[in-house]
Structure formats: C-alpha cells, structure tokens
Amino acid sequence: MFTQLCNQIFNQSILDYHQYNDVHQAISNPYDKSSIEHLLYLKNWIDTVQWHLEDIIRNPNIDPVEALGIKRWIDKSNQERTDVVEYIDSYFLEKYKTVTPAADAAINTESPAWAIDRLSILALKIYHMQEEATRADATPEHREACQRKLDILLEQRSDLGTAIEALLTDIAAGKKYMKVYKQMKMYNDPSLNPVLYKGAQ
C-alpha cells in the first residue's frame, strides 16, 4: 500500500536526521530525483528540520537576533514544504490522468498530498513521543502519560493511512476526483505583502 511506503520512508528520513541531530546538516536523499520516493523523503526531511527549529526558537534564553534568523528560516521552510506537497499532488494527477470520473463523483476535502503531509507530521510525533515514553531520566508518571499519548498517535496513523488508501482507491475508480488549488501564500510575495511592497516604495 502507498501509505506503507510513506511510513517507511518517513521513518528512514527521521532516523537519518537523528544520526547527527543537527538542523544544519545537509540532506542526503538516497532516492532518484525523478521518483515519488525522493519527494516523500524530501518532504519529511523538511518537516524534521522544521520540528527542531520550532524547539530551538522556544528557548526562553535565545538571543533575539538568532530567533529572528530562525523565524525567517521557518518561513522559508514552510514555503518549501508547500512546494513539495504540490509536487506530490502532481504525481497523483499524472498517475490518474486517464481516469474518467463518474457523473456523481465527489471531491475530497483535501488532496492526497495534503493528507500525506499529515502522515509525515504524525511520524515525527510518534518518534518523539516514543522518546519521551522511554526516557530514562523521566518520572514513571511522565513515561506512562507519554505512552498513552503514543498509543493514540499510533491509532491515529492507522486511521489516517486507511483513509488515504480509501481516497486513492476511489480516485482510481472514478468515484472521487482531484482538484488541486495551488497555495496562494501572500507573506512571502513582495507584491502581495503590504509590509514588503510599501517598504520598497
């Protein structure tokens, strides 16, 4: 199943990152650039680096200049994440381009790639909650509470995977159809962000 491939690659990306656990380390994507696996690995790597940037910026003693730099890094990361999601949806659009939707075909509330985006974030939540559930220097109460949360996250991943597989099956059968809206982020666009275009005048 496609979601099994996703989970496998997301876990690989997370483990690769945590070999060094450094937001500055360069990605070493092991998959061919033309493959969906390459996009899935890239997607999760971006998410993983951003996860740790979000941790760093919450340090109450962080230098304000450093915090500003990280905030801008996170903004750039968000744009990259959106771009990769759109590339993944392009893969599905190409895959199902010959399918003729049924007359009563319905549109889904989100595209396959945005559901896969949530699967990638869930992989990170599961990895880090597992860390907390087994942290040797934590109290038994902390570990037990985190194990309960981990159980819920694992159930959530299973449910989300089932929903994604059902969506892909319905698209392939013409019961649902894809309609992708390119993200129209305004804050990074100098012609749409008033702070940027007024500052340029």
Rank of each mutant, 00 (worst) to 15 (best):
S28Y: 05
K125T: 02
T109D: 12
A102G: 09
Y31K: 03
V23T: 15
L5P: 04
I121C: 05
G174H: 11
N7V: 03
W45P: 07
I116S: 06
S13R: 02
K95N: 00
Y197F: 15
A113F: 02
D89C: 08
V84Y: 03
A106C: 03
L40I: 13
Q183K: 14
Y31S: 04
L196S: 05
D137L: 12
P194D: 05
K33R: 13
V195Q: 11
Y20M: 07
K175T: 08
I126E: 04
E86I: 06
Y20H: 11
I46G: 05
Y87E: 13
S13E: 10
K125S: 01
R118D: 10
I62Q: 12
E37H: 05
L93A: 06
E94M: 01
V49I: 15
E155M: 08
T100D: 00
E155S: 11
E94C: 03
I164A: 01
L160N: 02
N108T: 07
S35M: 13
P140I: 07
R58C: 09
A113P: 05
D75T: 08
L192M: 13
V84Q: 01
P60T: 08
Q12K: 15
V195M: 10
Y41E: 08
Q19P: 00
K125C: 00
D63F: 11
W45V: 07
E131R: 07
S34K: 14
I46S: 05
Q8S: 14
H18N: 15
A102F: 04
I70G: 04
E54H: 10
I70M: 07
Q201S: 13
E132Y: 06
K176T: 15
D151I: 02
N108W: 10
I62D: 12
V195Y: 11
D22F: 05
Q50N: 14
H142R: 02
H142M: 12
A136V: 15
I56D: 05
I27R: 10
L68R: 13
E165L: 03
Y197K: 04
L119P: 05
D104W: 02
P101A: 06
Q183N: 04
K175I: 06
N188M: 13
A166V: 03
S158T: 10
W114K: 12
A123L: 03
R81L: 08
D137T: 14
Q25F: 12
S13V: 04
A26F: 07
L68Q: 14
I9Q: 03
G199I: 06
S191Q: 12
A123C: 06
I9W: 11
N59D: 15
D89R: 09
P112L: 03
